[in-house]
């Protein structure tokens, strides 16, 4: 299950961060997302180490915490997407698929003429679409 999804801007500031847990752990998830930005930086700055993921938007598993797995995605405009999931057995393809759909939703949201680039995304339509994508995570491949 996806517990948190975040869009992080150029100054590593959160543009959109949404947790999907019942428990009251928003703050903890914020910290996880924030710390994972270090790994994104590391990967982006040392592309030679990450080898095959060069020139790819999907950054792969950023780091495993005990209870979560954190995946990253970097758009061509250098906006970062961070995904935190509790599923410890996740298929890469699912995550890629998720990010692809999430990216499409993000592009639509920032294409809104009333959206100011660099500001937080407050669109309700975007939020609804994101929660739909999150709910269908892992199912889509089965269909």
């Amino acid at each position: 299950m996806i517990v948190c999804i975040a869009v992080v801007g150029h100054q590593n500031n959160p543009l959109y961060i949404q947790s999907f847990t019942e428990a009251d752990d928003a703050l903890k998830l914020h910290h996880i997302v924030h710390c994972s930005l270090d790994v994104v930086d590391e990967r982006v700055n040392n592309p030679k180490k990450s080898g095959p993921t060069l020139n790819e938007t999907f950054l792969g598993l950023l780091y495993p915490t005990e209870n979560y797995k954190v995946y990253g995605y970097l758009t061509n405009t250098k906006v970062k997407f961070i995904l935190v999931t509790t599923d410890l057995d996740v298929r890469d393809a699912d995550v890629r698929n998720f990010f692809r759909r999430f990216h499409a939703a993000y592009v639509d949201a920032v294409s809104n003429p009333f959206h100011v680039p660099g500001k937080k995304i407050t669109s309700k339509v975007f939020a609804e679409r994101v929660s739909a994508i999150v709910k269908s995570f892992g199912l889509s491949s089965a269909v």
Binding site: R43, K49, G51, P52, G60, L61, L62, Y63, P64, D92
Partner: peptide, 17 residues
């Protein structure tokens, strides 16, 4: 230590490990 590329990507230890 240079992370070896041969191991499976999913099981590959991440940077901080």
């Amino acid at each position: 230590h240079v992370p070896s590329m041969v191991s499976v990507a999913a099981e590959k230890p991440t940077e901080w490990e």
